[in-house]
Design a protein around this nucleic acid. Structure first.
Lengths: 335, 335
DNA sequence: GATCCCTTTGTGAGCGCTAACACTCAGCCC
DNA sequence: GGGCTGAGTGTTAGCGCTCACAAAGGGATC
């Protein structure tokens, strides 16, 4: 199979210099005469030489790869984050290796982290939105640069989070401002920090407004569970405003309300979270909260690179504020 | 910064053997006495030794990483495929490195492939659903194992495809069977093979049934463009059945039909493609075609591993048949 | 002219691993 | 006993690169 390509010494021979000079050219070191540099570059081009990263990784003890540990990369949020991360990493000259885990428990995470470490990744980004991921992260080898996204705010691990509470506050306030007496909430899974943050922001806003705080309706992230919750809410005439923990839940709720003949937004207003691309085409178009995945990715990489380069001094916590996107699913409550 | 962990020689010293014996244990070679193996394994465990893949990759000339080139990994299809690929690759002991490209033209693809090659990937999977990707693939270094997913059927590159035409045939036939005189089609972007295949299956089925073949309505993959096409179709009373190239287009169409007061499925039937998890919660629940991403991923990896191991003899083409998922968006046309 | 410094280049070692080969020690056959 | 086989183990030589250091040459300075 694969014939080994030319190595540095081949380039050196062709250019009539030592391999070390080739290395210097490649790494942009100073103290290489312009003329020499051009000769080396010509030789590189002629041979189609490509540096062998494995060799570099071996000697430097560090590769230009960052490992990502994520749960369900099929979900819109994680998928967007992953894509954004890949983008910024590529710009910084890093490759991204994904490791999906089914569950975010200690064993699964450790296994994937082990895999990444064996491959000598330069750092690891863990998209660890659940409680159970915590212990696994604490037991991780200390020498590996690590950043957590949407992880546990109470742990001493560099962390980038979407400000869930702020998003929820905006959503809830928007509904209150429209004239609703209170806002119901279909929440995400209890063990996700995202869920907790959204519940917190929602509750705080209601309390601040002196509104009654209904019990949150627990769901997972799927349209399916949104539908089930929606069936329940649809039968309760006092429900005029619903804030769901994500857009897919909102979709399920919309469908249930529709089936029960409760018109949105005339009778019931709905606000989601995520701003999936289709949200604008729900019936009716969904008002929702948009997290800035690109910003999260950038912040994560910055935090990681800082650690890789040894500047462990900087800020270890970054919070990215989401924005409310208003569409047609919110109106004043029926008189 | 990272302290280097224990190396093979450390394990060897602790176990009282040579590093080569440790290597043999690690690689499952025969001719290692049971007792020795246990001693080595104990030493490995005690030191928390982890083999250095970079070193292995350097000497063997091949890493345990496969590179994936994909376009928009935020879309449901690519994201699902990527996740499935990662799953099967992990089972086979391979890591997956993603490389997203904005456009699937020669330059972008080459750049990402170069990046993968520099990292010494063992093989490359290109999710290359568009025409323009073709030339880039032909110019790729021949020595790198390569598999194309949903690529150009006319090119001589190992290829795994979802049988788009078969899916489209099922969808179209299902609508005809419900009693519709013909079926309209909202198609994907013209340069995607997926689109072409779906158009082909749709057209063939109509022709075979002796039905009129309307001009396909061109769109991209977004709910947004589905909505625009839907607005047009909604105003045409003769339209009673629509097959959209994916579920998000269907969502847009549903929304447009709703706005124009054309009830689904009573007045117009709609069938999508992809079976996104939310499809069951559209209004109404969407009948759609489900591709088997896991099967595609498995087939791709098999083809790739065959090449990596040198069995270039096998079958170079794999086609995965999708299945129709019937829900509530299809009914007989109005009398 | 001797000394210094700065630029530019080369030399040698070694990162951690696998592959090839050499070696030892049994057991077996003639 | 000599020679064979095969199991089990060790020795050696790199893979392609970077790092530390050495060294050569030229200019400025005294």
């Amino acid at each position: 199979m694969a014939v080994r390509g030319p190595a540095m010494t081949d380039v050196a021979r062709l250019a009539g210099v030592s391999h070390q000079t080739v290395s210097r050219v490649l790494n942009g070191h100073p103290y290489v005469r312009e003329q020499t540099r051009l000769r080396v570059e010509a030789a590189i081009a002629e041979l189609g030489y490509r540096p062998n990263r494995a060799a570099r990784a071996l000697v430097t003890g560090r590769s230009q790869v960052i490992g990502v540990v994520a749960q369900n990369t099929t979900l819109y949020g994680p998928a967007s984050l992953l894509a954004a991360l890949e983008q910024v990493a590529a710009e910084a000259g890093f490759a991204v290796s994904v490791g999906s885990v089914r569950d975010l428990d200690h064993r699964s995470i450790s296994a994937v982290v082990e895999r990444h470490l064996a491959h000598g990744v330069a750092g690891i980004v863990v998209i660890a939105p659940v409680e159970s991921a915590g212990p696994a992260l604490e037991r991780l080898p200390k020498e590996v640069p690590l950043v957590t996204v949407d992880g546990d705010p109470r742990r001493l691990v560099p962390l980038v989070t979407v400000d869930q509470a702020a998003g929820a506050r905006q959503a809830t306030q928007h509904l209150l401002d429209a004239g609703h007496r209170t806002v119901w909430h279909v929440s995400g899974p209890a063990d996700w920090f995202d869920s907790a943050g959204r519940i917190k922001g929602w509750r705080e806003t209601l309390l601040a407004a002196g509104a009654e705080v209904p019990t949150p309706v627990p769901a997972d992230w799927s349209a399916s569970s949104g539908y089930r919750c929606g069936q329940m809410l649809a039968r309760m005439p006092e429900v005029t405003a619903v804030f769901t923990a994500n857009d897919h839940l909102a979709l399920g709720v919309l469908r249930a309300l529709h089936e029960y003949g409760r018109r949105v937004p005339d009778e019931v207003s709905v606000v989601g979270f995520d701003d999936v691309p289709e949200a604008a085409y729900f019936i009716p178009p969904l008002t929702t909260v948009r997290p800035d995945f690109a910003a999260v990715a950038r912040a994560s990489l910055d935090l990681l690179l800082a650690q890789i380069e040894g500047d462990s001094g900087g800020e270890l916590r970054q919070t990215i504020a989401p924005t409310l996107v208003t569409r047609d699913s919110v109106a004043a409550p029926p008189a």
